[in-house]
Amino acid sequence: MTTPNPLLSTPEHFISSQNGKLITTSMAIAEAFTKEHKDILRKIESLDIPIDFSSAHFYAHDQIITVGGGAKRKSKIFRITKDGFMLLVMGFTGKKAMAVKIAYINAFNMMAKELARQQSQADQVKQKQLQEISSRAAKEHELFRAAPAYRLEARDYVCEVLEDCRAFAVEHGISMADWEPVDRDKAASGILADMLHGIRAELTFNSMTLEPQFKILPPGAMYIMPTDPDCMMAIADRVVSKEVLAAMLQAGIARLAAGAKA
């Protein structure tokens, strides 16, 4: 019965992934080729290669290893890329060494496929998570638009604006007979839609305690000051047509003129 090559049956024992790059170690190479680790270190340190290649494919670090009798000591270990491995073992000769080199290269290829599979699986999971987040966000978006509390607050805001306009008209003797009031529910929906695209907020402070007070405002909102005719005229200009506004002004002027004649 043929014993399976451990390089092919358990490639992860000899090769691992670090920061998305496949690497082996000088210890693993010594085990695979049944050599002393010190001989592999000597071979690495004798390589006459440019410093830029060496630094890119051979990484030295100290590691605690177990030696004879269970004793432990510190030893230099090299982490080595596939290119570094192929350069290192190029001079290993013999039928057995050739078989190990081929098995090692196949193990690198197997691990590369496994790494690609895991990355693809991770990408699919991430894509699914993003789709779920997007779906939840869309649902929350719709819930926000339909939330009674927000809709009622927006509708109250519209009603306040219309009431201030009405009060201004009454105070100044302007007839409201030809003024078709705004659909309050549609206006509230419009305000909510605007809020979803760009929320504005008003931050004020209590004059006595300096306690912050936060209020959400719809985009384009303007302050209403009933005592300021220009402000109220600007509001009226937004909620009624120019023709109706002109008629309202003419009615007011006519009433003032009639009062002056009396």
Results as ranks from 00 to 15, higher is better:
2 T>S: 12
3 T>R: 06
5 N>G: 03
7 L>T: 08
8 L>D: 09
9 S>D: 05
9 S>M: 04
12 E>C: 03
14 F>G: 01
16 S>F: 12
19 N>R: 09
20 G>V: 03
20 G>Y: 06
22 L>W: 04
23 I>E: 13
31 E>I: 05
32 A>L: 00
33 F>N: 00
35 K>S: 01
37 H>M: 02
40 I>G: 00
40 I>P: 00
41 L>A: 01
42 R>I: 02
42 R>N: 03
45 E>W: 01
45 E>S: 01
47 L>M: 14
47 L>Y: 04
47 L>R: 05
49 I>A: 04
53 F>H: 04
56 A>K: 04
59 Y>D: 07
60 A>P: 06
61 H>Q: 06
62 D>M: 10
64 I>D: 11
65 I>T: 03
66 T>L: 05
67 V>M: 05
68 G>K: 05
69 G>D: 07
70 G>D: 03
70 G>N: 03
73 R>E: 12
74 K>N: 11
75 S>I: 09
76 K>R: 14
76 K>V: 11
81 T>F: 01
82 K>I: 03
84 G>K: 03
84 G>H: 03
86 M>K: 09
90 M>K: 06
90 M>S: 12
91 G>A: 03
92 F>Y: 05
92 F>G: 01
93 T>F: 05
94 G>K: 02
98 M>H: 11
99 A>E: 15
99 A>I: 10
102 I>D: 06
105 I>V: 15
105 I>D: 06
109 N>L: 13
109 N>A: 13
111 M>A: 06
113 K>D: 14
113 K>N: 14
115 L>A: 15
116 A>N: 14
118 Q>H: 13
118 Q>C: 11
122 A>F: 02
122 A>W: 02
124 Q>G: 08
129 Q>L: 13
129 Q>F: 08
132 E>G: 01
132 E>N: 06
136 R>G: 04
136 R>L: 13
138 A>M: 11
139 K>F: 10
144 F>A: 13
144 F>P: 11
147 A>N: 15
148 P>H: 08
148 P>W: 06
148 P>S: 08
150 Y>D: 09
151 R>L: 12
151 R>F: 14
153 E>Y: 12
153 E>A: 15
155 R>E: 15
157 Y>R: 15
157 Y>D: 15
166 R>F: 07
168 F>I: 01
169 A>M: 12
171 E>M: 01
177 A>F: 05
179 W>L: 12
186 K>M: 15
192 L>E: 10
193 A>Q: 15
197 H>D: 14
198 G>E: 12
199 I>M: 10
201 A>C: 13
204 T>Q: 07
209 T>I: 08
213 Q>Y: 11
213 Q>N: 15
215 K>T: 11
217 L>V: 05
218 P>T: 10
220 G>H: 08
220 G>A: 09
222 M>V: 10
223 Y>A: 13
224 I>R: 08
224 I>M: 04
226 P>G: 00
226 P>C: 02
226 P>E: 00
228 D>K: 05
229 P>N: 02
230 D>C: 03
230 D>V: 05
230 D>M: 07
231 C>V: 09
231 C>Y: 05
233 M>I: 14
233 M>N: 08
237 D>Q: 11
238 R>A: 11
238 R>E: 09
243 E>C: 05
248 M>E: 00
249 L>D: 02
249 L>A: 04
250 Q>L: 10
251 A>G: 04
254 A>N: 13
261 K>L: 09
262 A>R: 09
